[in-house]
Design a binder for these strands. Structure first.
Lengths: 191, 191
DNA sequence: TGCTCCATGTAACACGTTACATGATTGC
DNA sequence: GCAATCATGTAACGTGTTACATGGAGCA
């Protein structure tokens, strides 16, 4: 997998400890790629063993156990090699689609509340991305290559959330045509 | 996880063997949810043990080893219970985004060819979905509830591929501004 | 006879998730 | 002193992936 390469990319941007990486993966990076701290520690240990990264005690005079990881030349080379490999398209694999199929197969299951919850979550995320965009990419012409690529990545999230917001709104209309009855009233046709 | 529930939903639509399910997951369902035959056999065995489904020899007079699985009442109940649980939003976790970040961090890596390949794949999928839509949902008003939900699911795929096609086209423009040099000319800034 | 497809399965491993554990530092 | 947060780790388990194995059916 590529968690190791995601971590190295993050370390190239800024040398960090496992703990810091875990927090970054919960926040900005985590909007596009999530990982638990256990995954991260495990992967850091492997990468150090492989000679891709090296750690040293944090420059705090030994007051904490904190380790600072930095990418070695071998790691940089590996990242370049890997980046040129073809990347698999991610598949959708959305559990909610399975639920919709089940709803179609065995009758109204009362999915509207869940759909509303999801719509709300997507709207929240969209607003967060729009705020990022306004803050970090205010002008259009004067950006560096690096900034333009980071903007491109952010636009993936914007595109994604915009699409889901529209889709949820449409789905609510479709479900509303049938779910005038409450979920409690549903009976299994095969029962 | 919900592979078991995806399989039960599929079995509700049509009682099948593991082999048939595997082929269906490679095709229509697999556009939204993929699974290998090993996963499927393992999951079918578990579900039979749990009393959610039952198997019998296929009605072919014992000429093949084929087993026909069908959903039991306990399985249907479980599916209804599960469908009402909140479903996690799927995260993006796209390896290509990591590659783009790496490209931004350590300089042009020659991602354009890969991007073109992905654009082509998305266009192909989009065309396939559009063909499904034209074939299965030709009119707009006279559809059953089940058909309207299945149309909704298909529209997820359409939305998804349309978005990616647009994004890839935009990304190509961004990368073209810098990748006038060939990948071979790239040197690592830190070397 | 040999090839391909049908049909099911075992085994080993990689990755992701969850629970639990440990000890130090910071702030009240 | 106590709680929260920092910081790292072990263990167990579930799921997904890959390789390999088995044997029958249909066809040239």
């Amino acid at each position: 997998m590529s968690l190791s390469h995601a971590l190295m990319t993050s370390l190239l941007e800024k040398s960090s400890s496992g703990y810091d990486l875990a927090r970054r993966f919960e926040k900005s990076i985590g909007y596009f790629w999530s990982a638990t701290h256990q995954q991260i520690y495990r992967e850091l240990a492997r990468m150090e063993k492989a000679g891709w990264i090296a750690s040293e005690a944090a420059p705090d005079g030994g007051r904490t156990r904190k380790k600072l990881y930095k990418v070695l030349e071998a790691g940089r080379t590996e990242l370049q090699r890997w980046a040129r490999e073809p990347a698999p398209l991610l598949d959708i694999r959305d559990e909610f689609m399975v639920r919709l199929r089940a709803d179609a197969a065995i009758g109204p299951l009362g999915l509207a509340p869940e759909l509303k919850r999801r719509l709300q979550l997507h709207r929240t995320k969209l607003a967060a991305y729009q705020a990022f965009e306004a803050r970090d990419f205010p002008d259009h012409a004067t950006l560096s290559r690096e900034a333009r690529i980071q903007h491109l990545i952010l636009k993936t999230g914007l595109m994604y959330e915009e699409s889901w917001v529209r889709w949820c709104e449409e789905a609510l209309v479709v479900l509303a045509q049938d779910e005038t009855c409450s979920p409690e009233e549903v009976t299994a046709p095969g029962a």
